Amino acid sequence: MSDLKRIGIVGTGLIGKGIAVEVDRQANMILESVLTRRDLGTMEDHPFPDRLTNSVEAFIEACDLIVECSGDVIYGTEVIARAVEAAIPVVTMNAELQVTTGSYFAKKGFITEAEGDQPGCLAALHENMIDMGFEPLVYGNIKGFMKLDPTREDMTYWSNRNGVRLDMTTSFTDGTKVQIEQALVANGLQAGIAVDGLLAPYAEDLNEAGALLAEEADRLGHPISDFVLAPKGPPGVFITGKHDERQQKTLRYLKMGEGPYYTVLQNHHLCHLEVVKTIKRVINGGGVLLNNGLKPQVGVGAVAKHTLYPGERIDKGVGSFQVRGKAVKLADYHDHVPIGLLVDAVMKRQVDPGEMVTFADVELPESLALSAWLETIEMVHMPI
C-alpha cells in the first residue's frame, strides 16, 4: 500500500476540519477531497473550501484512502460501502458506526479505527503493552463527569460553549459515548464486559481502580473493557495487567507498585492530531489497528430515559433526550435495537423508563446499516 497518497475525509465538523489541516501538513499525503452534505455555499469557514464536494461518486474516484468521521451511522455506512466496493482502505473515527456496521465491513474490506479517540488509543497502548511483556486484563477509559438524563438547557449551554454539536455533547454526558467506545474495544481486542452497562467504579486513585477491575477480570477468566469515573483524572486511557513474577522487584523500582496488577496510563487523547499516525500506518502496510471484529460479543442498546409512547418519533438515538446507550452482551439481547440504528424511527409500542428498546417496539426505515446489522447479528448467533 506504499503508493497511497490521496486522502479523502468524510465529515466537516470540528474533528473533520482538524484532520484536514493535519493531513495537508504531511509530506507523504495529499488532502484530495472532503465529502460533505452541507450546502457548499455556506462552507466559507472550512480551511479547504476548494476541496469540498457533495458527490460521493467524485469523492470515491478521487481518493486512495478515506477517513470517515461524519458521526453518522446511516450515512457513513453508505459511503464506506462505496469505498469497500472500490477496494479503498477506510480509517474511521466513528465508534458509533464501528459497533453497528463495522463487523459487516471487516469481512468485506479494510476498515480500522484511528488513534485519537479512546478506542484507537487503547489499541495502540495494547500493542505497546504486549511488546513490553504485559498481560492486559483491563482496557480502561477515564470519564470525568456523567449524568444519565441531562437537561436540554444544560446541554445547549455546553454545546454552544465548546462548539460541539448538541447531540455529541449529550452523548458524552449521558454515558452513551463511553458505552459505545468500550463496546468497540471489547470486540476489537478480544475482551468482554463484566456486566451490562459496565462496572464504572468511582476513582480517586487510578491504580486502585485498575486493580479492582483487574481482580474482576481475573475472577471472570478474561480481560474486560470498562471505564472509571474520575473527576480529577486526566482525559486519557489506561491498561491494567499482570507481568512475569520475575519482574516484580524491577517494576517496584520503576514506581509501578507491588503488583500483581500494574496500571499503565496514557494521560491524553488528542483526537484529530493523532489520526495521521493511523493513516501512515495503513499507507506503510501496518494493518488494522482496531475494528469491531468478525464476530462481536458486545453491542450497545437503547435504554429509554422517559416513557416512549406509540407514534413517538426518534430522530436520532445517539445524543437524544429520549434514549441513552448501554453496552450489553449480545448473547443475552438477541432482539435489542442498536442505538446507532435509531434514526428516523417511530415507536410502535410503549417502552417505560429504564427499559431497552427492541425491534418489536419500533419501526425503522430500510437502510444498508439495518441490513448490515441483521447480517452481523445472525452471524453472531450462528452455532460454531
Rank of each mutant, 00 (worst) to 15 (best):
259 G>Q: 07
250 T>Y: 12
91 V>C: 05
139 Y>K: 15
370 L>P: 09
102 G>S: 06
123 A>P: 08
93 M>C: 07
360 A>I: 03
91 V>E: 08
332 D>F: 06
330 L>D: 04
338 P>Q: 06
369 A>I: 10
145 F>S: 14
246 R>P: 03
176 T>N: 04
277 K>H: 04
255 K>C: 13
239 I>L: 01
188 G>D: 11
141 N>A: 14
231 P>W: 01
292 N>A: 13
232 K>D: 02
158 W>A: 05
142 I>V: 12
268 H>M: 14
99 V>S: 01
161 R>I: 06
181 E>Q: 00
226 D>Q: 09
174 D>P: 04
29 M>C: 07
354 G>R: 13
360 A>M: 00
15 I>N: 05
315 D>A: 06
170 T>L: 06
16 G>N: 03
35 L>Q: 04
99 V>H: 00
184 L>P: 02
305 K>G: 13
80 I>N: 02
133 G>P: 11
103 S>N: 07
226 D>Y: 05
92 T>F: 07
201 P>V: 00
39 D>P: 04
108 K>Y: 05
66 I>C: 04
259 G>T: 12
44 E>D: 11
208 E>V: 15
107 K>Y: 08
291 N>L: 10
323 V>I: 15
159 S>A: 07
277 K>Q: 09
142 I>A: 10
346 V>F: 03
343 V>K: 09
300 V>F: 08
290 L>F: 10
320 S>M: 11
125 L>P: 13
269 H>F: 14
322 Q>L: 14
228 V>C: 01
38 R>L: 01
43 M>I: 02
44 E>H: 06
286 G>D: 06
87 A>M: 06
311 G>A: 15
102 G>D: 03
373 W>S: 03
197 G>M: 00
322 Q>Y: 14
11 G>L: 10
123 A>W: 11
28 N>S: 10
114 A>G: 05
113 E>C: 11
5 K>S: 13
324 R>I: 07
62 A>Y: 03
380 V>Y: 00
300 V>E: 08
67 V>E: 07
58 A>Y: 01
